Simulated scan of single mutants.
Amino acid sequence: MSSPATARRLWALAEPFHALTYFAPECRDAAEQAGLRGFWNGYFAQRAAPLGATGPEVVTAVFYNFAPAFVARRLPAVWADVSPAAALDARLAGIDAAVRRVLGEEWIGSDDAVEAMDLAATAAAAVDLPGRPLAAANTAVQVPGEPHLGLWQAVTTLREHRGDGHSVALSQREVDGVTAHVLAAAAGRSDREWLMRARGWDDAAWDDAVARLTERRWLDDGELTAEGLAMVAAIEADTDRLALGPWQALGDTGCDRLAALLAPVRRSVVAAGDWPAGNPIGVPDPE
């Protein structure tokens, strides 16, 4: 049976393809053309659009690691500029243009693209919905007919399913959003400056989180203690375990084949410069 390591490997392989929606210039342009001025208006509108025209409280809850005031500066104001349906159209338009540049027309029309879509869609159809609000919302999004867009929607549903589980793993250990970022920086998965800028936390909030983690003996002089290392490992292990269900439904053979199909896709995204080093998502290199 597929193991938690399988879930982690497929996340690492698929995430750069999903993240074109954040980093590719075509995606930013599509958001602007839809009426979403500025990166963060586009980000919050397009990622939250499957939930409907919801407000900052719900988005703060389900996105988990953003400063509440940072979210509230964009929501619900963005819904005066664009409807959720229009935001979904814009994100697909951006992905369509980005994938055509990064992977080319030959790949888009290839048997590999069709097979990858079919495998990812099989896994995405098996996500468990209770306690997975972002994954559940994405399962209700109409699946595009083109293979590259269908693949993107499937891996998006799967990564939001994983993210929902990660929130559970953090919450059960009383690790809030800013504290999660402090742990990620201490573990070397990203850096403080980028995380603060990209998630809206200020120095006071960060320093308070450091103090709380020091009191819990997870940090010592800003470095992870043995207990802190163990807790970070436990959170990641729980996240992998909670992400496993869809991959078990796909099966070992299907998972291995999808990994083989996603590896060159990931390489193309990285080579194109659309996966910035040290970005705040904190995805490891696939093993």
Rank of each mutant, 00 (worst) to 15 (best):
Q142F: 12
A259C: 14
H181E: 02
D208M: 13
V168Y: 08
V265P: 02
L262H: 12
P264K: 02
V283Y: 06
L129R: 13
A259I: 00
H166Q: 09
I95S: 04
P56N: 10
Q33W: 05
A272L: 03
L258D: 08
A34Q: 03
L134P: 00
H181Y: 01
G150H: 02
A98D: 15
R162D: 03
R266A: 05
R74V: 14
L229P: 07
N138V: 04
D240I: 04
T239Q: 06
Y43L: 03
V270A: 03
F44Y: 08
Q248W: 01
A136H: 04
L92E: 13
L262Q: 08
V143N: 01
D81S: 13
V82L: 11
A260R: 07
E26R: 03
P16I: 03
H18R: 08
D118C: 10
L149K: 14
E32F: 14
R9F: 05
R9M: 08
D128Y: 13
L242H: 02
F70W: 11
T6F: 05
T156Y: 06
V182G: 05
A48M: 13
D220W: 15
P68R: 03
A61V: 15
A113R: 06
N279Q: 08
E236A: 15
A48E: 06
G42H: 02
I95Y: 05
D252W: 07
T60M: 08
V58Y: 07
A271H: 05
A53L: 13
W218Q: 04
E236V: 09
P76H: 07
R47F: 12
A126W: 00
I281M: 15
W79D: 01
V143L: 12
W11H: 13
L10E: 06
L219G: 05
A123E: 02
A67E: 11
D112F: 09
A186K: 14
V62C: 10
Y64I: 01
T122Y: 07
L75P: 12
E57Y: 06
A209T: 08
